[in-house]
Simulated assay, not measured.
Amino acid sequence: MLEKLLRRKNVEVQLSITERVVNIKHRTIPSHVAIIMDGNGRWASRRSLPRIAGHHEGMKTVRKITRIANDIGIKVLTLYAFSTENWKRPKIEIDFLMKLPGEFLTTYLPELIEQNVKVEMIGDTSSLPIHTQEAIAKAVEATSSNNGLILNFAMNYGSRLEIVETVKEIAQMAVSNQISIEEIDETLINAHLMTSHLPEPDLLIRTSGEVRLSNFMLWQLAYSEFSFTDVLWPDFDEACMLSAIEEFQLRNRRFGSVEGEKGV
């Protein structure tokens, strides 16, 4: 009897999610959603588990959120997987985090290919372990011809470093007389960022109750809508994602103007 009730409840929840997805598709859908995946360690601590258990559970959430983002019709999903500051964490945790891309992509690569998802990465790959680089490169190559959702991992990424490297590139162009100082503008800077081929994020989501950007896409998020939730990343499910999108669709995006543009 209990099993039957649980099955019925699961069906009702799924129908609710399906209906919400349909409703969302009738409104303005964010083209690019960026997520700071936070709270894996706290999720594990609250269950008296090692921090790496939280990271492993968070990997399952990546799969769920990728699938629902693809269903909605989002074009780009950028996930902040490992920052340039995360190297300060204990070595055992870093080693585990460096293995996760390989585990995730090996496990779910056939599904990503089937769903027409294209895997990309921003960040400094040179400092990543060889096995991490190879796992990412394999997924990028295997999905290179896909033209659906872009699943963009930010690995060993820091926005200030990105901006510094961009300034260096443009300064070198000026020094070598390829451009004049007067030609340096927002368009030129955008063209030299790691995200130059992507639209700027319409929506930033951060989980776990923290309300800061943590050196993530500082330039690109200038006019993004922000959504902060107390839900820890391993508990962030399809319903949470839909709630963030629905909230976005109710906002009036002004982009500095008086009237702006409504999300609905």
Score class of each variant (00 low, 15 high):
N146A: 02
S144Q: 13
S214E: 08
E162D: 15
T143R: 04
E200G: 00
T132N: 07
L221I: 04
D202Y: 05
L204G: 08
N152W: 08
E134Y: 11
T187H: 07
N215K: 07
L218M: 15
N156G: 14
S214M: 09
L149W: 10
S227F: 15
T207K: 11
E162M: 02
A139E: 06
S227I: 03
I136M: 15
T187F: 07
A139N: 03
L151T: 08
E186C: 00
S196I: 01
E165T: 07
A135R: 09
E134S: 14
L151A: 11
V164E: 14
I170G: 01
S224K: 06
S227K: 13
K138L: 12
Y223C: 09
Q178Y: 13
P129G: 05
D185C: 00
A137Y: 02
A191L: 03
M217A: 05
S214T: 02
S224D: 11
E183C: 08
I163H: 06
L151Q: 06
N177K: 15
D185S: 11
T207D: 10
T195W: 00
A191Y: 02
I163F: 03
A137V: 00
S144L: 09
S144V: 06
F216K: 05
S180M: 09
L188T: 07
N215Y: 04
E162Q: 13
W219V: 01
S214W: 04
T132W: 07
L188P: 05
I205N: 11
L198D: 02
P199A: 12
G148V: 05
A222N: 05
A222G: 01
V164C: 12
N215S: 11
R206F: 08
Y157G: 02
H197Q: 10
P201D: 04
A139H: 06
E186T: 00
L198H: 10
A137R: 10
L221M: 07
L213T: 14
Q133T: 07
A137W: 00
G158Q: 03
P201V: 07
I184G: 05
K138P: 00
S159V: 06
H131W: 02
I170Q: 01
N146E: 08
R160K: 15
I136W: 01
L218V: 14
A191H: 14
A154Y: 00
Q172I: 12
A222W: 00
S159W: 06
M217V: 09
L149A: 14
I170A: 06
F226Q: 09
A191N: 12
K168G: 09
R206D: 08
P199Y: 10
W219L: 09
T187Q: 13
L203W: 13
Y223V: 07
L203E: 13
H197C: 03
L151Y: 01
I150Q: 05
T195K: 02
I136K: 04
N147Q: 13
R206W: 02
P199W: 13
P199N: 14
R206T: 13
A142Q: 12
E225W: 03
Y223Q: 07
F228Y: 14
T207G: 11
V167F: 15
L203H: 12
L151W: 06
S224Y: 06
E200F: 04
E182V: 06
Q178R: 15
E182I: 08
D185Y: 03
A174C: 12
A191F: 01
L204A: 09
